[in-house]
Amino acid sequence: MKMPRRTLERARPSRLNRQSAFWRNEDGSATIEAVIWFPIFAIMLAVVMNISMVFFAESQILRVVQDGNRAFSLGRLDDAAAVETYITDRLSYLDAALAIQTTISGGFILTNISIPATDLMPFNFMTSAFNDINVGVSAQHIIEF
């Protein structure tokens, strides 16, 4: 059986009709938008993770400093140098440039630590924005012995 010419033309669109239909089709538009936005979200995620890890490390450092000061205030450590060694040993896993200063006066022990924020960031991504920022931790305890 032979198809009429008019029905055959509808069944096979011309090349021009296929090209214009291709340009009108919006099926892949969400994929293109996702490809455009993905790097922006990835950068934001990396920055947020870097900053959150700095705050997490700061809380860990504070806990170690408090433990060291408490050990001295109970008489478990002998002097300020022993407190600094205790803190340095407990924070060696950070592999950071720690600046520790411990002073004992007036019945109190005071320990101050300063660390570059970039040393606490897990990703070496956009760290130049944080080069001049130091994280400071300080703790003071009453000497009980």
Rank of each mutant, 00 (worst) to 15 (best):
A71F: 10
L110K: 10
W37G: 01
E84L: 03
Q101A: 13
P39W: 02
S14Q: 06
R10C: 11
S52N: 07
F72T: 02
I87Q: 01
S92Y: 04
R24K: 14
Y93N: 12
I115V: 15
P4N: 13
D119L: 05
S114A: 12
F108M: 14
F22D: 04
G106A: 06
Y93Q: 08
V54T: 09
I104K: 02
A80V: 07
M3F: 14
K2M: 14
L45A: 15
R18V: 04
I40W: 10
S92M: 09
T7N: 00
D67S: 05
A82M: 05
G68I: 09
M53G: 12
N124E: 03
Y93E: 09
E33V: 08
Q66V: 10
P116E: 03
V47D: 07
V65W: 02
T31R: 00
T103M: 09
D119R: 00
S14D: 15
E58Y: 02
N17P: 00
H141L: 07
A30K: 00
F22H: 04
E84D: 13
S14T: 15
T88V: 09
T127W: 06
L45D: 01
D67V: 03
P39S: 12
V65K: 00
F123Q: 11
A42S: 10
P122Y: 15
I109V: 12
R6C: 02
T118V: 13
A71W: 07
D95E: 14
I143V: 15
P4C: 09
R12T: 14
F56Q: 08
N17W: 10
P116F: 03
S105G: 12
F72K: 03
S29T: 15
T85A: 12
I61E: 09
V47E: 15
D119Y: 06
R12E: 11
R70N: 14
R24V: 14
M121P: 07
